[in-house]
Design a protein around this nucleic acid. Structure first.
Lengths: 357, 357
DNA sequence: GAAAGAAATTAACGCGCGTAAAGAAAATTG
DNA sequence: CAATTTTCTTTACGCGCGTTAATTTCTTTC
């Protein structure tokens, strides 16, 4: 496991040579037998250094890669790793997937990225296709509420799976994600410490379970602080969160029902929409003089640094989540794909103060 | 080609049955011979309707999928399609990749998404790995300037490739992308028609060739209009365009060298950074009264609708690009992977007027 | 219902590689 | 140097499926 297998990087080749068809031929050109070369590709350290040198010299000259389909045919497990996210065009998922993917590559695996594009039908097809690839493991951020539980359960029985981002009870061998309570606690604490307690701005029917956890956290924290909670649930379907936030904010401001000058958004994408609405209405957002509203949020979306004003938010520890994901997968693979008990790792948030609150 | 192969969607299975090991076993359970079943999987229409029904009934019951590695081992071509982009965490690429991927799925292919993460080393590894997958075709948006030309050229010799987004001369069988000249023409025309001629705001050493084409287009258009061009090139490396734009804008404003009230950004991500800088400096952007600056840009980045103010931009026709990509790949596959002559399709921009200019 | 045509079956080979067993060759040890 | 251990070679089988050729069985047609 985790051995450094050569990956056929571009090198100066001898072009006059015809293309190598198979390992037999390559072995002959290396002056070795096929089983030895096969051993090398399974673990370069398993052959004598001198033999290894000969193979690697031949590799320089002839640009040969074992046929990936033939290699995997008899294997019960491959070096494939699947990374499945609900919607890759959401920069948050693009970013977390990016970090995990890079970690996988570093560890010598072949990660493949999949997006369910917000549809449970596609999520199912991805999982069923992934099963056929016999991956060593899969990182799955499920769609959430609209996921096909039965399909995911079936998948997790066949493939060692680490859930991330969105937890689904008892699904997969482990869960790695952010601690939603910590997110909300930090933002609410900060906002209360520096001004009025926040109202909570969210989508009414979020597909993602984290949204519900954040609402519950908000309610609990406000209650514990003896403060009256104020939840604003806006309507909207699909993955256009910014537009939903923008529309919802316009409706909110028009209704005149907002009783505070501090809004905590469930996530940054809603906040981005809300800030756009504020700008459109000439509402100045920030903590300074002449500001009508403070806005904070959660996720540290890649774009939250560049909103106007820049968004105060509770950040995911992207690197830490990715590291923990990898670590979990490694021990999962070492345990033969199953854990005795399902572990859940919740990584706390890091508060990032910017100009919006 | 393009046949509707069943994809093993979740169905009610008879759980008591043991798992099918191979096609032989599945054929027996269907009451048919393996070659017939094999024929079916290659083309469901190639067997008698009655036979087809029997297989599909068995498929309902037993949840069998041909071993993907064994299937592809002897094939010189698979139904795999690769989609390679330079940086998937850039929402522009995430969006165009999303649309192309969905089109591929609709067409019955198995698309796989790859991101070079901004590194030519990874781009090379993706291509060399992709070659091994014997894909029917590949959509490649190369890194651009830092791409390893020789590696890409070698890849294109082995695999039918359609370049998109970034053109590299004579590389691949075809290119599909947006018409940078049209982008700049529309924005410059609009800006000149409604106010002062724009200065052009760009990165000094853009990796992406489109940036150079846009600068040239700007210079040409200004020249033809008898106007003096003014190019502002800001420093910066990597993929953090927003931050580069923000820093560059601050430097620009601090220097006092800006001689116009109209800025045309090379792309939306730079513009997002520039708008953030404007906000931070209290510069009001827009075309209305009391605005210090007009800002327009190119790409119709998914967030350009939500900047403050919303960004006037020349939009890619995402759908049209994706459609043309698919169309090109289809005819490429039908032509056996090679075109007589390399075609270049440039799709004009669509101007989107918003509040920023 | 017989002849012609279509579709399925049987049998067999090949793809490229993993892997195991047995023996030969090389490296290591005392 | 001989004895031992390690590594490599030879030989051979198996994986699951594509594919072909020769037959057999089923459909269609008149």
């Amino acid at each position: 496991m985790g051995r450094a297998v050569p990956t056929g990087e571009p090198k100066a080749r001898i072009m006059s040579e015809h293309k190598i068809r198979n390992m037999e031929e390559f072995a002959a050109l290396s002056g070795l037998s096929r089983p030895t070369v096969s051993k090398y590709f399974n673990d370069p350290a398993s052959v004598r250094p001198k033999t290894r040198e000969r193979i690697e010299a031949a590799l320089e000259r002839y640009d040969f890669r074992p046929n990936i389909f033939a290699v995997n045919q008899n294997r019960s497990l491959t070096k494939n790793v699947g990374i499945v996210v609900p919607y890759l065009a959401d920069p948050f998922f693009a970013e977390i997937a990016r970090v995990i993917e890079l970690r996988c590559i570093e560890a010598g695996y072949s990660p493949t990225l999949y997006s369910a594009h917000g549809e449970s039908r596609l999520e199912n097809e991805i999982l069923s296709g992934l099963t056929a690839l016999k991956p060593a493991g899969v990182f799955l951020a499920p769609l959430g509420r609209i996921s096909d539980r039965a399909a995911i359960e079936r998948f997790c029985r066949d493939v060692p799976t680490v859930l991330f981002d969105s937890n689904i009870e008892d699904m997969g061998e482990a869960f790695v994600g952010s601690d939603n309570f910590s997110f909300v606690q930090q933002t609410v604490d900060y906002l209360c410490r520096t001004g009025a307690p926040p109202a909570f701005f969210e989508m009414r029917n979020p597909a993602n379970p984290n949204a519900n956890k954040r609402r519950h956290a908000y309610l609990k924290i406000m209650e514990d602080a003896g403060l009256e909670p104020h939840v604003i649930s806006v309507e909207g379907q699909g993955w256009g969160f910014e537009e939903i936030g923008r529309q919802g904010a316009h409706d909110l401001f028009a209704s005149g029902e907002l009783k505070t000058d501090t809004i905590l958004c469930s996530n940054d994408r809603l906040a981005i929409g809300l800030l756009a609405a504020c700008y459109e209405r000439g509402l100045r957002v920030g903590r300074g003089e002449g500001c009508a509203l403070r806005v904070a949020s959660h996720d540290d979306h890649p774009f939250s640094r560049f909103t106007c004003p820049a968004l105060t938010t509770a950040a995911h520890e992207y690197e830490a989540v990715a590291d923990k994901c990898m670590e979990t997968l490694f021990s999962l693979i070492e345990s033969g794909g199953r854990f005795e008990t399902r572990t859940e790792t919740l990584i706390p948030a890091r508060l990032i103060l910017r100009a919006s609150a």
